[in-house]
Simulated scan of single mutants.
Amino acid sequence: MRASLPAELAVVVPAYNERSNVALLVDAVAHALPDVHWEIVFVDDDSPDGTAQQVRALAQADARVRVVHRYGRRGLASACVEGILATSAPIVAVMDADLQHDETILGAMFRRIRQGDVDLVVGSRYVEGGGMGEWSRRRIAMSRLATALANRLTGTAIGDPMSGFFMLTRGAFMASLPGLSSVGFKILLDIAASAPAPLRVAEVPYTFRTRQHGESKLDSLVLWEYLQLLLDKAFGHIVPARFISFALVGGSGVVVHFVVLTVVLETLLHLHGAADEERWFAIAQGAATVVATSSNFFLNNLLTYRDQRLKGMRLLWGWMTFNLVCGIGFLANVGIASWLYQRRNYLVVSALAGIAITTVWNYAMSSIFTWRRRG
């Protein structure tokens, strides 16, 4: 009877390769919320370990268990957004699938938000009674620095804005939804920074646990994602975060371009002399463009389009299409740069003009053909 009632609370759980944890988490949530009509929505990014299949098996025995199976896209923040939109519950909690968040405080969080005077209840590691568990001093220091930056951005007083464990009302989420970036892994920061008015916040302390099963999803690129989110919240109303990332990667491509251009041009001039300098410059500019374009492709695949990262044969096909659609930009690059150089413009001016053409073309075409969303 309880499972057939409308859910008062939905627990949204983004998951990737968490097969061994899902049953444990469902059981833990059930024990933590004995008097609440709840449901749990796992959002699985097509885990190769069969996480989605395991959740479906659990759902066959318990109607309160659901799964949103995503294909062709990844990302913790966007998974949380899709999970929240997939439920009709008036109150929604977000927590990780790795059992590091203390589910026993869900009841206290729910009772607090039901009082009606707050929009958001955060499971906090930084208020009295909370703790970081077995984190190293270096990781704690980095977390506190990120927290200070986050609070300056949001304008909302949250002791732990980097927390991935929180509960909010449907109204608060829907108000923030139009401004969400869905970038990276800090969805709470995204929601708070996107709210049209400062959120009313309460915090419940908990101690962060040590992962028991599976592997951590945090890697060396999470800092990049965090910086992307901060940039998007600060400047996203002017230019998208993905474009900012693309431009930063393009900056590294400029360095690669000039290094290759200089080496190839100096080599050709040394071998053949300066009698046909314009021709050697065109060849050097072409070589530099090819190398810089490939460098930009692989870096953008790793950073800018991390949530749509190409792998295996799709990586090879993506590289081919990236170079193919950049063909027109390549020809314009070499043509314009050579035309300017022949008219006695500085090498830097000539090369930058060609780079500008290629950069604009690459950005437009890559979003359409190379990293187009699937599913």
Score class of each variant (00 low, 15 high):
3 A>Q: 15
50 G>R: 11
35 D>W: 01
24 L>Y: 08
68 V>F: 00
156 T>M: 11
296 N>E: 07
24 L>F: 05
210 T>P: 06
111 R>I: 03
1 M>K: 12
48 P>A: 05
236 G>P: 03
195 A>R: 04
305 Y>W: 12
136 S>G: 07
164 G>R: 02
276 D>L: 14
122 V>L: 01
13 V>G: 01
79 A>I: 11
317 W>I: 09
291 V>E: 02
155 G>W: 04
89 A>E: 07
68 V>Q: 06
335 G>S: 13
214 G>Q: 08
58 L>Q: 14
223 L>D: 12
355 I>K: 09
154 T>I: 02
75 G>C: 07
10 A>Y: 07
251 G>C: 05
45 D>S: 11
347 L>V: 06
120 L>V: 12
125 R>N: 07
86 A>R: 14
128 E>W: 04
343 R>C: 01
23 A>S: 15
104 T>V: 05
313 M>F: 04
22 V>M: 12
231 L>P: 00
317 W>G: 14
9 L>N: 13
214 G>F: 12
187 I>T: 12
168 L>T: 01
314 R>H: 09
203 E>R: 09
109 M>Y: 10
6 P>F: 09
301 N>E: 02
332 A>D: 02
20 S>I: 05
265 L>S: 11
119 D>L: 01
330 F>A: 03
357 I>L: 09
275 A>D: 14
95 M>I: 07
159 G>E: 07
292 A>N: 08
341 Y>M: 05
98 D>F: 14
99 L>K: 02
158 I>K: 08
250 G>P: 01
102 D>L: 07
305 Y>D: 06
277 E>P: 00
137 R>K: 14
303 L>E: 06
352 L>H: 11
128 E>C: 00
7 A>Y: 09
287 A>Y: 02
49 D>L: 06
78 S>K: 12
247 A>M: 15
233 K>N: 10
50 G>V: 06
257 H>M: 09
179 G>H: 06
131 G>H: 11
169 T>M: 03
281 F>A: 05
48 P>M: 05
145 L>R: 15
298 F>V: 12
313 M>Q: 15
226 Y>T: 00
239 V>I: 15
9 L>Q: 05
91 I>S: 12
369 F>N: 03
30 A>P: 00
257 H>I: 06
48 P>Q: 03
280 W>R: 15
319 W>Q: 14
184 G>T: 04
231 L>D: 07
58 L>S: 05
187 I>S: 12
358 T>S: 11
152 R>C: 09
17 N>H: 15
252 S>R: 03
214 G>K: 08
119 D>E: 07
316 L>Y: 11
318 G>L: 01
131 G>A: 07
300 N>W: 02
60 Q>D: 15
342 Q>N: 08
21 N>A: 14
55 V>S: 09
238 I>S: 13
261 L>P: 00
84 I>L: 10
126 Y>A: 15
343 R>N: 09
254 V>M: 13
140 I>Y: 11
299 L>T: 08
119 D>R: 04
